[in-house]
């Protein structure tokens, strides 16, 4: 998502992306299909990382998870002094290198194993023992976790469904519906209740405080205990069978607290009862869904 915001908002360089050293595309991936592993060497500051970011020498991937091939396998890492040419990375310029593979074929493991065990790698020169500014010519260990797709019943979800892991294809002027399936609730306090409110806030910037809201669902204060009185417009409709939903247009819903009409980047919500008596009167999770901010 951070990478998406990067391109959505700033056309390629957001603050969030600064923290990202390695990632995969597309997001989410299909382990049985082609993916691209990207490494931004500019952000690999340990060992010889800074030197690798500017080198013109060939660079190689060295990977040991989810599976490390044994010596003699065509995709074995090679030796520290002489990497296997099959693992040579492509250079995209400006310190960005990438490697394309089909994960289940490359590692020769199941898709489940790809989800269970992160991809671990480092980037090195053919001879990792060469001197790169006083360190070995390698980056620190990098790890990419692959999140399994959500299947089956979900306690909290939205309509339209997420296009990627946490991002919608729609923007904030479209209708979005948040659903809560009480049948999957593990909090006993909520299991027989029906007075649910979807307390939503809208993100207008990338820091933790860049939200507009009527009530901040993540920080319910004593004065906000009467949720039903404070945000009656956020009452969830009872669809029957333990399912509740709240349908709204974010740009309209927040027009009263967003006078300068800042672009809404995401919505974050917490489902809770109409009157908060104790800390168990809300659903524990507080998901955030990002909008497509490319088009209005």
């Amino acid at each position: 998502m951070k990478k998406s915001i990067l391109s959505f908002v700033f056309g390629g360089c957001s603050l969030l992306s600064m923290a990202q050293k390695a990632w995969v595309e597309p997001d989410p991936i299909n382990p049985n299909d082609s993916i691209t592993i990207w490494v931004d060497l500019n952000k690999c500051l340990d060992f010889g990382g800074p030197a690798l970011a500017t080198t013109t020498d060939d660079l190689y991937m060295w990977t040991w998870s989810p599976f490390e091939h044994k010596l003699g396998h065509p995709l074995h890492n090679g030796t520290w002094g002489a990497s296997n040419d099959a693992l040579k990375m492509r250079n995209d310029g400006n310190g960005l290198v990438y490697f394309r593979m089909v994960p289940t074929q490359f590692y020769e493991v199941s898709a489940g194993s790809i989800y269970a065990n992160p991809i671990k790698l480092l980037v090195k020169k053919k001879n990792g023992s060469d001197d790169c500014g006083g360190s070995e010519c390698k980056t620190e260990d990098l790890e990419i976790k692959i999140t399994a797709p959500v299947t089956g019943p979900r306690k909290l979800y939205c309509f339209p469904n997420l296009k990627t892991k946490d991002t919608l294809s729609i923007n904030s002027s479209d209708v979005v519906t948040i659903f809560y399936d009480r049948n999957l609730e593990t909090n006993d306090t909520l299991k027989d209740k029906e007075d649910f409110y979807c307390v939503v806030k809208a993100r207008t910037g990338l820091t933790e405080t860049d939200f507009v809201f009527y009530v901040n669902g993540d920080e319910i204060k004593a004065a906000d205990r009467d949720v039903a009185g404070k945000v009656p417009q956020m009452k969830m409709k009872n669809y029957g069978g333990g399912k509740f939903g709240f349908t709204f247009i974010p740009s309209k819903l927040f027009s009263g607290v967003n006078p300068s009409n800042q672009k809404i980047l995401s919505i974050k919500y917490k489902v809770m009862r109409g009157y908060i008596r104790k800390q168990y009167d809300w659903v524990e999770e507080s998901p955030e869904y990002w909008f497509n901010t490319v088009c209005n």
């Binding site: 309509f159 339209p160 469904n161 997420l162 296009k163 479209d174 209708v175 519906t177 349908t247």
Partner: peptide, 17 residues
């Protein structure tokens, strides 16, 4: 509203609301 991202729908409510 029609969800255009649903690849497999088992009920109409999976794609239409």
């Amino acid at each position: 509203q029609i969800d255009v991202n649903v690849e497999v729908a088992f009920r109409e409510s999976d794609t239409l609301l």
